[in-house]
């Protein structure tokens, strides 16, 4: 009798074990991700300043936020940065992938060189580009001392152009990764269709335009989703490269949130800006993840 109960307990345990094993991770995610999101969103409706405080103020933080020129500048910069970063990375990644797909000698070496920036920290990338672009010691100084005295390249110190140096460094860091995604897509294309089209006399240009590139749709989508969420999260690179300056010329929502929350003691406004960042990413990620997970069923 005891033996039967024991066996029964064992099978019951076996059927619960998988859920038991999953539960610590799930608990961590529920508390530290979703619980925290709720807490932050709640804070964005309170009068929190240096520390969290629970006086309800409704939409006040949001209306204050949208009146701040600092926030407006951050959003404008994000618009320029995201548009250029996403489009340049995509075009460059696709072009390099197509070139690299032409039975290139030493493909492995070239691929390694294109991809290594992905392994570096944005702080390292930022440091390298910061001094290379610095007019005092970098490119401008190098060319001027070597005789081209009228050469000027001070974008990183120029309010109107500094944001483009952030684009340059960010593209340098991620375009190789995008190239790898497109290359994987290209390698998955069925050669028989291409051969048939070649027999019909299609030019390479038409093969790419009409057959190959349309088949890369999933790679385009993944690249867009990954790049846009990276763009919205860009923080370290700006800190290392320009510190948000000159003035506010390279401030982005992520740096705005950080300075309002931790150095200007405007936690309510900081939380409001973080909420807007989250909503933007959710609008891109949720439909994507939903479609991905449904397909796999």
């Amino acid at each position: 009798m005891a033996h039967v109960a024991d066996a029964d307990f064992k099978t019951r345990l076996q059927s619960w074990l998988p859920k038991l094993v999953l539960s610590p991770s799930l608990a961590l995610v529920l508390v530290f991700v979703y619980g925290f999101i709720i807490f932050s969103v709640y804070l964005s409706f309170t009068d929190s300043r240096l520390l969290p405080s629970y006086g309800w103020v409704g939409w006040e933080n949001y209306s204050k936020l949208w009146r701040l020129s600092h926030w407006e500048v951050s959003l404008k910069n994000m618009g320029i940065f995201a548009a250029l970063y996403i489009s340049i990375c995509t075009v460059l990644g696709l072009s390099l992938a197509i070139f690299l797909d032409q039975k290139i000698r030493a493909e492995g070496v070239i691929r390694t060189i294109y991809l290594y920036p992905m392994a570096l920290s944005f702080i390292v990338t930022g440091t390298a580009w910061k001094w290379f672009l610095d007019p005092g010691i970098g490119l401008e100084n190098v060319l001027q001392t070597s005789g081209w005295t009228t050469f000027e390249f001070d974008w990183i110190k120029n309010r109107d152009f500094a944001i483009y140096t952030v684009v340059l460094a960010a593209v340098w860091q991620t375009s190789g990764f995008v190239m790898a995604m497109f290359l994987a897509g290209l390698r998955g294309i069925d050669n028989e269709i291409l051969k048939a089209a070649q027999m019909d006399g299609a030019s390479n240009w038409n093969l790419y335009r009409r057959i190959i590139i349309p088949q890369l749709r999933p790679a385009f989508l993944s690249a867009f989703v990954i790049l846009s969420h990276l763009a919205i999260k860009t923080f370290d690179l700006v800190i290392a490269l320009t510190g948000g300056g000159p003035g506010r010329a390279t401030e982005l929502p992520a740096t705005f949130m950080y300075s309002y929350t931790f150095s200007r003691n405007q936690m309510g406004i900081g939380a409001a800006s973080a909420t807007i960042m989250l909503m933007t990413i959710a609008a891109i990620m949720i439909p994507y993840l939903y479609a991905e997970l449904r397909e796999k069923k």
């Binding site: 999953l22 799930l26 925290f36 800006s273 973080a274 909420t275 949720i286 997970l293």
Partner: peptide
């Protein structure tokens, strides 16, 4: 089990959130 894909989706979405949204509660926690 029933609902496992939703649980996985919840875990996966957590990778992509802007971490600014968890900084304040995390510091307190």
């Amino acid at each position: 089990f029933r609902g496992d894909t939703i649980l996985f989706g919840l875990m996966l979405f957590a990778c992509f959130i802007p971490f600014q949204i968890v900084l304040i509660p995390m510091a307190r926690m």
